[in-house]
Design a protein around this nucleic acid. Structure first.
Length: 1017
RNA sequence: GCCCAUGUGGCGGAAUUGGUAGACGCGCCAGACUCAAAAUCUGGUAUUCGCAAGGAUGUGAAGGUUCGAUUCCUUUCGUGGGCACCA
């Protein structure tokens, strides 16, 4: 009888499905346990080997908890709205709902093959109207709430309105615009429209204006990762910033609670740190500087708010060390203060900055900036300070302006050096003139009334002085910004909002879900509006509804849709009560399941999804809909399984203006460079450079181009010299890879090689075999767009799901990222076959015996005590390793166990059966098969995890390592209970120790019981 | 640039709390079985000196703390992830 995994796995997968083995009840006497995987996005590429890593880990843990007697909720569903489906629709004319459904079916089929214990009755899909009805409903709750800073929680906006009617907003400063202040009478005098505008500044879900990446040529808004070097990734068209009306979530109001909540959850320190940094709470001061001019220390007589510059600093103590100011180039003051002489230069600089993404700006090493010609007046000593603009100051953070203190801040220091701005030293010896020193411990000098004060004490003095003088105030600042919550897209949740005369009117709950309309085209509307704006029947459908005031203009539906994270911010609640049509999740049910006990997913969600879902949970808690305000009790971050990409190069497209002011591009010319020489080629074709060529040029002019891995023969000795099969590329990927392939010696055009002969490029049919196009391997994220995806199906077909599951775990710690590699999968498969052979002999058939192992050496022989020792050692190890998510070492422990049992020729049912139970979480199919073969009638899924008994593993002696000065020299076998006093003479008598002592007495003998002995000479 | 993680044999990795570095698996070498192959089994396998016994070196690099450091500290280099519209 051999191990026929294909038959076995199919049999049990069918059986478990038919017997509803994974159905989970919301009523149980058992303790509950909730294991959740991060929502997958069902991409068209299907499941790759990276996805299941986390799912297998969570499945192992869920099954383990079930064996331990818990009622385990372990659901799966799909985060099904998203950009790729919409892009696919634009390109292929297939409705996103259809392609998404296909992708989901494909995902499901792949997941089913791996043997997961998901309760599929609880599947949720964010694009299902039955689901997004509740996403819209929660949005309305956020829309109808504000954050009460006294109670530190979300409360109803109607309460706020009554507060305004009785006391104005004196005690409730406006979070959206601090300048809005009114008393009750003034409030009552406001028009309805203005009252609504004011309320919008309070709502947790609100509408405002924000910048997007606008691509005129594509007529659409682009995601950050669709913009590369200031041009669109597709087509290479210019991209500019454009201000659009946008929805936001007022997550900043929750900043403090999001920080505090981190102390109550079991996330890794790294994760907590990332979230803390993202929130970026800092304490400092806002200081107002008047704009003056160089000669006069007196502010311009025309001083108005437009000639005052407010900066934010965390180091007000350095106020006398300010040598220049830096304002973000998009700051509204820039236009007003720039002098005529500097105007041209400033505008040129702003154009440069506009062409750059935020990330590029932050990552830029090169120091760039431009003087505005204006001076700010230091309010403490009336010193005029030059005002510069630079890309390193971002508009969205603080006030978008900083005071630069070169002696205390490295970036300011480099800026000052680069532009030859004189540096004032206020920290005496602590500043060496070579680099900035950000100490807070120095005594201040050159600092007027602060001279001699230690910096950290000066902070408070300055803040007090600023407040007394009325030129600023103490300010707590957050790096975190409100979350942009709208997308100019089709494939997302529509907002249940109608606009009429500039007022946002929520659609009544009874009208939900507000369904997406059918559309014929997914192209965007005018001026960056979403595709929905083209569907007139749809956007005007509520024009005459009775909840719309009859007078005024037309009521029109919001045409933006919600972003991907809307549906995933609360899905863990829907799994608990997925079919409820009355509410998003019954309160009794959410009280029963409570928090997610174990949440598994990648660190790439560290700040986005995890912060948003934490905020939604807090809001739902504040409003009384659920009973806890942190969604995830424990978070386990799975590493990424990376793909190995194959990289060729193309020239970067760089836009330059020619003399006529038109945009000209390089990188798509009709000349190519081969070995320092120029060849003429048709312009339209993609020009791919061999990786070998690139090493001879400046790499900055090229960017990587991913080649499908199946076209490449790998060179294991040198990963920079993998060979591309050009013929296959032209055949299989004719659209994408119909390119001119350029190597160091020639180029390939339409499948033919050309090399230089005499003075011309000639077709070379004789020398073809010598022409090789090299691509290099690079480890990066596995993704369809990088053509490096490895699919689990083939592996499962070859080795089976149990092998696949164990192999993915055996690769290494789940938290660690590693490139996918199938080396070693044979070993895991061999292990399962070896396990099988403890039960079945190929010729003899079943070989397990009913004879019981015994501790008594006389009766059963020594082997049986050994068998029990192996078993219980394994029980302890598997239990410990599984509890601490060390699945790779657990797999090793199974291997060790089976190796030992095979050596002992142990076929005893009493030993083997517990091993099978322990194996269920890891390899459920083979475990069930052998369990049933042993004659059990119930399913092994519901067996009880074996109980460890220390008496079977007790040792009477230990082989102690003996080190001399920390280096291992020998070992001595000693009684387990021996004391230091007893040890010393034995050690000193040891031959090896005597040899090293050379007759001298040791300085010290260190004895750590149960661990080691170290003799210090 | 900033934040986080990570670096150990030919390869994936182990060493859980500062205590025998390299468990387990792959690969490789040798052997058994076989007409042969597959499968399976046995032994070996960090580097280096040595016939051996036994030494020396060794956890990205350089320092430090310690009787003892892969583990703690400082500096530094490489790689991966995130940086707000991919999900």
């Amino acid at each position: 009888m051999e191990y026929k995994f294909r038959e076995i796995e199919k049999k049990w997968q069918t059986h478990w499905k038919e017997s509803n083995a994974y159905k989970v009840s919301n009523n149980s006497d058992k303790p509950k346990y909730y294991v959740l995987d991060m929502f997958p996005y069902p991409s068209g590429a299907g499941l790759h080997v990276g996805h299941p890593l986390g799912y297998i880990a969570s499945d192992i843990f869920a099954r383990f908890k079930r064996l331990k007697g818990f009622n385990v909720l372990h659901p799966m569903g799909y985060d099904a709205f998203g950009l790729p489906a919409e892009q696919y629709a634009i390109e292929h004319g297939i409705h996103p709902a259809i392609s998404t459904e296909n992708n989901i079916n494909n995902f499901r089929a792949q997941l089913d093959k791996i043997g997961f214990s998901f309760d599929w009755d609880r599947e949720v899909k964010t694009c299902d109207p039955k689901y997004y009805k509740w996403t819209q409903w929660i949005f309305l709750q956020l829309f109808n709430s504000y954050f009460n800073r006294f109670t530190q929680k979300a409360e109803s906006i109607s309460q706020l309105i009554s507060t305004f009617e009785t006391e104005g907003n004196i005690n409730f400063p406006c979070p959206g615009d601090a300048s809005i202040e009114f008393e009750k009478d003034l409030w009552k005098s406001f028009t309805d429209e203005y009252q609504q505008e004011v309320l919008m500044h309070y709502r947790l879900a609100y509408c405002g204006y924000g910048e997007v990446n606008w691509c005129e040529a594509l007529g659409t808004v682009l995601a950050n990762d669709e913009v590369v070097n200031g041009v669109s990734e597709r087509g290479g068209h210019p991209v500019v910033k454009k201000k659009l009306r946008q929805w936001y979530l007022r997550i900043t109001e929750y900043a403090d609670r999001l920080l505090q909540g981190l102390q109550t959850v079991d996330f890794s320190d790294a994760m907590k740190e990332m979230q803390t940094n993202w929130i970026g709470k800092s304490t400092g001061a806002e200081i107002i500087f008047n704009i003056g001019n160089r000669e006069s220390s007196i502010a311009s007589p025309l001083a108005t708010s437009a000639s005052r510059l407010t900066i934010y600093t965390t180091r007000p103590d350095t106020i006398f060390g300010v040598d220049f100011m830096v304002v973000s180039p998009e700051h509204e003051l820039v236009k007003l203060i720039t002098t005529t002489e500097q105007k041209a230069e400033v505008e040129k600089y702003i154009d440069y900055v506009n062409s750059r993404s935020e990330r590029e700006r932050m990552a830029e090493k090169k120091i760039t900036g431009c003087f505005t010609g204006a001076y700010a007046i230091n309010p403490f000593n009336a010193k005029p300070i030059p005002v510069w603009i630079s890309e390193y100051v971002l508009a969205g953070y603080g006030t978008g302006a900083i005071m630069a203190v070169p002696c205390g801040d490295e970036r300011d220091f480099k800026f000052a050096k680069h532009f030859n701005i004189p540096i004032t030293n206020i920290i005496g010896d602590h500043f060496n003139g070579e680099e900035a020193n950000d100490t807070k411990e120095a005594k201040l000098s050159n600092s007027d009334f602060l001279n001699g004060v230690v910096m950290k004490d000066a902070i408070e003095l300055v803040v007090n002085q600023i407040e007394t003088l009325g030129i600023g105030k103490k300010k707590i600042n957050y790096r975190m910004r409100d979350a942009a919550f709208s997308r100019q897209r089709y494939w997302g949740e529509p907002f249940p909002i109608i606009w009429k005369d500039g007022v946002a009117i929520p659609i009544p709950e009874s009208e939900l879900p507000l369904q997406l309309p059918e559309v014929k085209s997914y192209s965007p509307g005018l001026e960056g509006e979403g595709p929905l704006s083209n569907i007139h029947d749809w956007i005007y459908q509520y024009e005459d509804a009775d909840f719309i005031p009859p007078s005024g203009g037309k009521g029109v539906l919001e045409t933006n849709t919600m972003p991907g994270y809307a549906g995933s911010s609360w899905y863990f609640l829907r799994y608990m009560d997925p079919h409820n049509a009355e509410t998003f999740c019954n309160r009794k049910v959410s009280d029963y399941w409570n928090q997610v006990d174990l949440y598994i997913g990648g660190t790439e969600h560290a700040v986005g999804h995890l912060l948003y879902s934490r905020m939604w949970t807090k809001a739902l808690y504040d409003l009384g809909f659920i009973g806890y305000d942190e969604p995830f009790k424990k978070l386990l971050n799975q590493g990424m399984i990376q793909g190995v990409s194959q990289i060729a190069y193309v020239q970067k497209i760089e836009f330059k203006e020619n003399e006529k002011g038109e945009e000209a591009s390089r990188g798509e010319s009709n000349t190519i460079f081969v070995n320092g020489q120029v060849a003429s080629v048709p312009e339209a074709k993609l020009q791919l450079y061999s990786s070998e060529v690139i090493n001879e040029y400046n790499k900055d002019h090229f960017k990587p181009y991913n080649i499908p891995i199946e076209l490449v023969s790998l060179n294991s000795a040198n990963p920079k010299r993998n060979e591309l099969n050009i013929k296959e590329a032209l055949k299989k990927y004719s659209n994408r890879l119909n390119a001119i392939y350029i190597t160091t010696t020639g180029f390939n055009y339409n499948g033919n090689w050309f090399i230089k002969k005499e003075n011309d490029w000639v077709e070379d049919i004789y020398n073809e075999a010598n022409q090789v196009f090299y691509v290099e391997s690079e480890v990066e994220k596995m993704s369809k767009s990088k053509y490096n995806v490895e699919n689990p199906d083939e592996i499962i077909a070859k080795y089976g799901a149990d092998t696949f599951r164990m192999y993915e775990m055996f690769l290494g710690p789940v938290e660690q990222s590693k490139p996918w590699d199938t080396k070693g999968i044979e070993g895991v498969h061999r292990f399962l076959k070896k396990l099988w052979r403890l039960f079945y002999d190929e010729v003899k058939g079943p070989i397990w015996t009913e004879s019981a192992p015994s501790l008594s050496e006389r009766a059963g022989g020594e082997a049986t005590a050994e068998e029990l020792k192996t078993l219980h050692k394994t029980i302890k190890k598997i239990e410990d390793d599984t509890e601490r998510f060390s699945f790779n070492t657990a797999v090793s422990a199974f291997m060790v166990c089976v190796n030992e049992l095979a050596d002992l020729k142990c076929n005893k049912r009493e030993v083997l059966e517990p091993v099978l139970i322990m194996l269920v979480p890891y390899a459920p199919h083979i475990a069930e098969e052998l369990w049933k073969a042993l004659g059990n009638s119930n399913s092994i899924l519901d067996a009880a995890f074996p109980v460890f008994d220390a008496k079977y593993v007790a040792e009477s002696s230990k082989e102690y390592p003996v080190s001399i000065n920390g280096k291992l020299r020998t070992t001595i076998s000693l009684d387990i209970n021996i004391s230091q006093q007893e040890v010393e003479p034995i050690v000193l008598a040891n031959e090896t120790v005597q040899k090293w002592l050379e007759g001298k007495a040791p300085k010290k003998i260190i004895f750590v019981k149960g661990k080691m002995i170290n003799v210090v000479i």
